[in-house]
Amino acid sequence: MAEFWEFIREPFFITLWIVAILVPLLLGVAYLTYAERKIIGYMQVRIGPNRVGPRGWLQPIADALKLLMKEIIVPQNSNRFLFLIAPMISIAPALAAWAVMPFTDRLVLANIDASLLYILALTSMGVYGVIIAGWASNSKYAFLGAMRSAAQIVAYEIAMGFALVGVLIAGGSLNLVDIVQAQQGSLVHWFWLPLFPLFLVYFISGVAETNRAPFDVAEGESEIVAGFHVEYSGMAFAVFFLAEYANMILIAALAALMFLGGWLSPFEGTWFESWFAWVPGIFWLLVKTSLFLFCFLWFRATFPRYRYDQIMRLGWKVFIPITIVWIVVAGGLVVGEVGPWFN
């Protein structure tokens, strides 16, 4: 018995870890949809969902139940295998990327050496779900949506990758824990200040990568109905939705880790630092992540959708040159040991 326990102990605890990360993540996704409807509702002087449960708190649960009960319709001329596997391909990388996410300096499931690279590689896989869904549906709208999304993701991934290169130059490591620890000091020590252009480029590219407004031409409902997931119904549709929102949370959390000091307290280095010393680091990370998530929703309520050629121009002709220039500047800052960040 003891031997058997010895054999399964590690897999058991890792499974427990995964559950402890994914259950709050999926709950976060559910309540992000609720927050989205409420916040955009208030911005547009509406009330938003308020019927199910007190103040509409149970609305996401009701939505999930409804989607679970619905029939999954597979179009007759679709490629059945690829049609059904596409949602899985889109959610698997969105969830797997969380394996290396550090929540505090010790609270991390897999503290691998190249965690930043790992996340970048996995987020770049998400596009397959979209392309395969669009192609396998054998529908013109779905296919147009998939093509738009593929071109957009490839364009913005380069800008995003270059922004991350700047971060790893500044942090001197590919490991997210080390990157956060390199920002220790105070609010001005965080990398948002020396890498400000990269910070903006990263976050805007993140909005484009997740196909969110104002870059949501992949599902531009006024032109191509709903883009790549027109033909999906029930839970298969919900899985695409889950993947999109999980990716949003991932982008927001990464932005918080790389540019806003992750779990570091914003009061560090000020005279009332000790007042907030009891606050656990994960709380600060959640606050910063929520800040970015709020921006996602705010953008959606504020900006009109970009035209397709404008998106391409912004990605290729504006963001990529900015990042290339700032990588050189960041390298100069590090080599010149410019304070207070790099000395």
Binding site: I112, D113, A114, L117, Y118, L120, A121, L122, S124, M125, V127, Y128, I131, W135, F143, M147, A150, A151, I153, V154, E157, G161
Partner: peptide, 26 residues
């Protein structure tokens, strides 16, 4: 060789093959 492995996924799976797929589908 984790750097090479992740780079293989990032460059070939994440970028090159997406363009391949794009062209073949079109």
């Amino acid at each position: 060789a984790e750097f090479l492995a992740i780079t293989l996924v990032l460059v070939y799976v994440g970028a090159v093959m997406v363009l391949f797929l794009f062209v073949v589908m079109m």
